[in-house]
Amino acid sequence: MADKPGFPEILSLGNTGYGDELLWGAVMTLNIALFAYGIGLSIGIVGAICKLHGSKLTRSILNGYTTLVRAVPELILILLLYYAGTAALNALLASLGYGAFAINGFMAAVIVLGFVQGAYSTEVLRAAIMAIPVGQLEAARSFGMSPWMEFRRITLPAMLPFALPGLANLWLICTKDTVLIAVVGYTELALATRQAAGNTKMYFTFFMVAGAIYLLISLLSQKGFNWLEARVRRGQRVQV
């Protein structure tokens, strides 16, 4: 075993170990998750408001979106949107007279995951807004608040306690769903781990380490969300 590095050294940074590759993969995973979650939340806020106050047409479009996305496995959606999205974009560019365009793997991953997350967060936020006692919203309106001020001052802070458990769950799902991007062939933590494991044949070590990194991300996020929930619930009566 003189020329083959063993367990701790294989994870070192630099040329002999795979530590830097794994760390880079973890950073990519977090990046993808953060951007996708942001896009999902934006879709979710707009979607929830439109689903509650929109016209019949808007509501049926949104219902179709949330039902379809939640009935099909994420992996298949990601493959479909990835290939369909690139093909549609290239067809559009070709019809406008531009050449084919190689889609940036990171952008595609973020947009596709965000689109999937958006359907779930629409439902979470809609339920949270509906859980606000209607008297509070009526009071805001009778004070003459504009819709935007009502949303900013009343709806948003009042719905957060109801929405946060669901949103925390969605973030955990989002970080774990980033591994599906590996199937499309974009290098994040899961694919980096698989490549490292394949090169060294130390499958157990590497998948254990990757699992530990994902677990660490989950546990730390859970701590963060607990703190956040305690903060948005301040001023609420403590339930005995």
Binding site: K176, D177, L180, F207, L215
Partner: peptide
């Protein structure tokens, strides 16, 4: 706390 894909591969 860990992705199912990692568990399957492990």
């Amino acid at each position: 706390g860990t992705p199912l894909l990692i568990q399957v591969w492990l």
